[in-house]
Structure formats: structure tokens, C-alpha cells
């Protein structure tokens, strides 16, 4: 793996807390001494948050498709009618 990827891996191990306590301490000291590394670590943290948002968005789309299938496909008509009857005003 090229050097920059090894650095990305090290940042990941620090952010996801998979490195040893000694390595965590050493890395924290490096973050203080090296602003460029600190900047990369912050951007990488943001990248994980964006990946999570992307995952949630895709899952929401999958769930919405299932809902549409259950309410549009003739195969599921009894289910749809059962649900709609629950919201009919008596």
C-alpha cells in the first residue's frame, strides 16, 4: 500500500478506536504537532458521517420501494385493504 493510504489507515484506526492505547496517545500527540494531519483526520471523520448518511438514504429508498410494492401490487391487495380500513372514519 502506498504511503498516503497507510496514513489513511492509521487515521481510521485512531478514529474507530482499533489501535492500542499507546498508539492512540502517540497519534494524538502527532495531531497536535502536525496541523495538516489534524485537518486530514477531521475531514476523514466527516467522510464517515457522510457514508452513514448515504447508507441511511439508500435504505430509506429501499423501504419506500417495499411500501410502494405492498400498496400497488395486486398480489398484496388484501394487506392494503386491511390497512386502509384502519383509517376509515366510522
Amino acid at each position: 500500500m502506498r504511503t498516503s493510504l497507510l496514513e489513511t489507515k492509521r487515521i481510521e484506526e485512531h478514529i474507530l478506536h482499533v489501535s492500542s492505547p499507546g498508539e492512540q496517545l502517540l497519534f494524538q500527540a502527532q495531531l497536535i504537532l502536525d496541523p495538516a494531519l489534524d485537518e486530514k483526520a477531521m475531514a476523514q471523520q466527516k467522510a464517515y458521517s457522510l457514508i452513514r448518511s448515504y447508507g441511511r438514504k439508500k435504505l430509506q429508498e429501499e423501504i419506500a420501494l417495499v411500501h410502494a410494492q405492498l400498496f400497488q401490487s395486486p398480489q398484496h391487495t388484501p394487506f392494503k385493504e386491511r390497512i386502509l380500513s384502519l383509517f376509515q372514519k366510522k
Partner: peptide
């Protein structure tokens, strides 16, 4: 795994 870190690096650069 190598590709995963390349992708992560790309996203990090875009964020920056």
C-alpha cells in the same frame, strides 16, 4: 482493501 482506502482518501479530499 486498497481500493477501500483509495475511495476514502478521495472522499476526504472532496470534503477538504
Amino acid at each position: 482493501t486498497v481500493q477501500k482506502y483509495k475511495c476514502l482518501e478521495n472522499i476526504r479530499n472532496t470534503v477538504n
